[in-house]
Design a protein around this nucleic acid. Structure first.
Lengths: 230, 230
DNA sequence: TAGCCAGATTGATCCACGTCAAAGTGCCGT
DNA sequence: ACGGCACTTTGACGTGGATCAATCTGGCTA
């Protein structure tokens, strides 16, 4: 087992980075590395969480499933991010399914040892508390987006959040459907919105998987409800 | 200052009930009791959180405000429930406004002392971690409701959640607008939905403020997408 | 290189819910 | 008992985004 790799992953992960090396080492000894194919389900909604997963390589989606083939992508996670903390720490069934959307490797910190570590390690406890607050904050923001903003605003905000003026190009991880679902849109609507933004000259669709942001500040205006007259 | 009352409130509050009496006492010594008129703002979005509030008497709403006079009620809290934990523990600005919707008294645990206590008291830390997970869980559920279910289903679920077969009658706290906003509906739509459910015989609208659930299991069916043919 | 297939795009149509407007209801103070 | 006022209910109408149904695109296999 690649103990060094695991240790390394832990120190790169915001949730565990603040820990003292000794505590990290203790956790590492219990951890396992897991590999998943694209599309594979990592942990299933309504089942107990096997532990906390830290994404090492690849991309993972957290998706809530509901009757009638409905689904909603709560979160898209890349390397360094953690999933399933909530279910583990709250000791309830997974509120959502975790699925790899490309070939992915994760570190799994099994629930039992983690909870035991938690009972002893105060620093770890504080770290996780912070991480959890950030989760709530993120969810509230997501909620605001979905409830209070229309499609164009949501897409504009997403584009701004995922790019910077140093890195104006965004290439979509996985399918656009996943992104659309994350923004609570259909693929069709996302497509149409991107077209409108392109027509307005705010972005350029380079190809199916890449978009370049042209005017950040104007896009910011759109995100706040001022779509330029056509 | 009513120290006994505060201690009592803490032991009744799920978040602090598990604490040993000594720890509770320490917290109590720093706590203050506050009284608010109906409609008064307790803590404002985007400002630092003064501390954690525990509702003693009355009713409080947690509401997210957005440009364009838009708002969304994230949570309605009664006695024993806590608000603002997230902002305090995550050490960021309040993601939402807290407002009394009737005459209300709260216990305020100021942020500084609470964080200091947190650094020393491991049990407290674990308690809060659990509470936070429950918050996330609640938000994810709320999200599912809003994103994946239609108006009738949401109202049906709300009615079921707020009543029991021993207590089939629900009387609305505050205005119906607040409830409607919580379910991401307008007052008008809520009104229409209640009427339809009444017409179908599933509930009875006793008066403007009270509803009686007649057929729990049928309402459960409605909540899962089977509205009876008219 | 042709052919295939998943996903993306575009257009046409639909519908749940919001918005606006007009009663209706019930509570309060005088 | 009478207004007045805030909230609710109901109706008429508009619309954003979903749905359905063709193409279109681009990567992969043979």
């Amino acid at each position: 087992m690649d103990t060094n790799g695991i240790l390394d992953t832990l120190s790169r992960c915001p949730l565990f980075a603040g820990l003292d090396p000794e505590g990290r080492l203790r956790l590492t000894s219990q951890a396992r590395q897991k590999r998943y194919a694209a599309g594979e389900v990592i942990a299933r909604q309504d089942f107990p969480a096997p532990g906390v997963f830290i994404v090492q390589v690849g991309q993972v989606r957290v998706v809530r499933l509901a009757p009638g083939n409905k689904e909603h992508v709560l979160h898209l996670c890349g390397p360094g991010q953690t999933v399933a903390e909530v279910a583990v720490l709250g000791e309830f069934a997974m509120p959502a399914t975790i699925q790899a959307i490309e070939e992915t490797t994760c570190v799994l910190l099994p629930a039992g040892p983690l909870m035991r570590a938690l009972r002893e390690d105060h620093a770890l406890c504080l770290q996780l508390l912070g991480g959890m607050s950030r989760w709530v904050h993120h969810l509230v923001d997501l909620m605001e987006d979905i409830v209070l903003r229309d499609a164009v605003e949501r897409v504009a905000r997403y584009l701004l959040a995922e790019t910077g003026q140093d890195k104006p190009t965004l290439n979509f991880a996985g399918t656009k459907q996943h992104i659309a679902s994350h923004l609570n849109l259909t693929g069709e609507t996302l497509s149409r919105v991107l077209r409108r933004l392109d027509d307005a000259g705010l972005i350029t669709r380079i190809n199916q998987h890449e978009v370049r942001v042209r005017h950040r500040e104007m896009l910011g205006g759109v995100a706040n409800g001022h779509f330029p007259r056509i």
